[in-house]
Design a protein around this nucleic acid. Structure first.
Lengths: 237, 237
DNA sequence: CGGGAGGTTGAGAGGCCTCAACTCTTGTGG
DNA sequence: CCACAAGAGTTGAGGCCTCTCAACCTCCCG
């Protein structure tokens, strides 16, 4: 990877032309890469950032904390994802962003970023697409949490993350990095830690996945996707 | 209401200037209002619409149907909401849109709509805002489904819908229209119909709300909001 | 070698589900 | 104007999924 926006370009170019001059324009407004260690808070809840953050490497989560202390992860992001493109349009963050692994990110100040969108139709379109795509993933999570069992939800999460990793060139065959603790997984799936653990064990015992030392390997895609009722359509468009 | 976009303008003008000429430009690309009867499907799942739909009156829901037949509503929309602004950017609908009450809608063809965004910076900004706002609501629903009990989730839904109705001038004091059947409510909250019914009764019995003949009246906002852990921030920005 | 984070296990409780029946409301046709 | 049908709402009972509490294990690192 030569530039911070390579993974993003790779994903977008699956379905669109991004002209080299447009790519160069975005690249020119990205700040130099910055690192966060696993566990660090990248953006605080209720913050009002004046820049948007692009993941270059690692995994980050958007975390909502309720008054009673309950925590729910509303989105996971990997290399090539903008973590908070929406902050271009919304005044306050409704959630914090946490590094779930060591991360490298590059930020773009809102002013120049908006200018890129005005000057390059390809980016105006792509930013709209990225916002809409984010929402499409949110909707699938709503279905996952509202209408699927814990086992199916976990299976779906694995299918989604594998697909997204593949789309940016980060899946090696049936395997990809998943540096979540089971506590964090529970906060994604809306479960208690104890039950999250049992769900993981159950999929392992059935020979659907292997998961150890921050790496998931999918052993039986067909059965996993069937359990998850995974339909990749919402990720592609 | 004189024009189809009045409620939308009202909502946006809570935080932005929308110049009259920009307003006129959007209005000029809206098609004449069209009606749907309660229960009608406005947009089919997997459709590829070439227009976006603005609610003028009524209530609509975005409905995802899984292979096993389970149904989950991922969003509710009232007057002033674009139901599928994202279709400007995404090729296929990932869900259907259903009229939950008699509805009046106006559509705008994607071509002219995109042109309005290019020619009027206020609309470029507002469309980005509306997309991001939609996603913020999705995120709150993820928290609601993942980390709140059925009672709290229902309470939250009521708080959110009252606030949104108020913002477009459709709340009369503590009351607003909620033309959902309990089956539909269950599909919003990710519950069985039976349990949805018990949740409704429970909030009624506690004197938090009244709900009859498609109309909700909030009897004790403070206790309802506390139960819901409702924080209006995500709706305002 | 000790400490701590992460993972695992067991047992009992509770929220929510399914199945099934029953009641109430609404609207339609005779 | 009544009778009936269909849809919506309600109730009961039993069972499963998931939660809480609490302990214990394992691995890694200093």
């Amino acid at each position: 990877m030569h530039s911070s926006i390579d993974r993003l370009l790779r994903k977008l170019r699956l379905r669109w032309e991004i002209p080299p001059d447009a790519a160069a324009a975005l690249e020119s407004v990205m700040q130099p890469p910055r690192r966060y260690a696993r566990g660090e808070e990248m953006i605080a809840q209720f913050a009002k950032p004046n820049e948007s953050t692009l993941m270059v490497a690692g995994v980050a989560g958007r975390l909502v904390t309720l008054e009673d202390g309950a925590e729910q992860v509303t989105a996971l992001h990997i290399a090539g994802d903008f973590v908070d493109l929406h902050s271009l349009y919304l005044r306050r963050q409704d959630h914090s962003v946490v590094a779930l692994d060591d991360c490298v990110v590059a930020t773009a100040p809102h002013g120049p970023l908006a200018e890129v969108a005005t000057n390059y139709p390809a980016w105006a379109l792509a930013f709209g697409y990225l916002l809409a795509w984010d929402a499409a993933v949110h909707r699938r999570w709503i279905v996952m949490l509202g209408r699927q069992t814990a086992r199916a939800a976990f299976a779906h999460l694995i299918c989604e993350l594998w697909t997204r990793n593949r789309d940016v060139g980060l899946a090696e065959g049936p395997a990809f990095d998943l540096p979540l603790t089971q506590v964090e997984l529970a906060n994604v799936l809306g479960l208690s830690t104890v039950h999250a653990n049992r769900v993981v064990q159950s999929l392992r015992a059935e020979g659907l996945i292997r998961w150890r030392s921050a790496r998931v390997e999918i052993l039986d895609w067909d059965r996993l996707a069937a359990l998850a009722q995974f339909d990749t359509a919402y990720l592609q468009h």
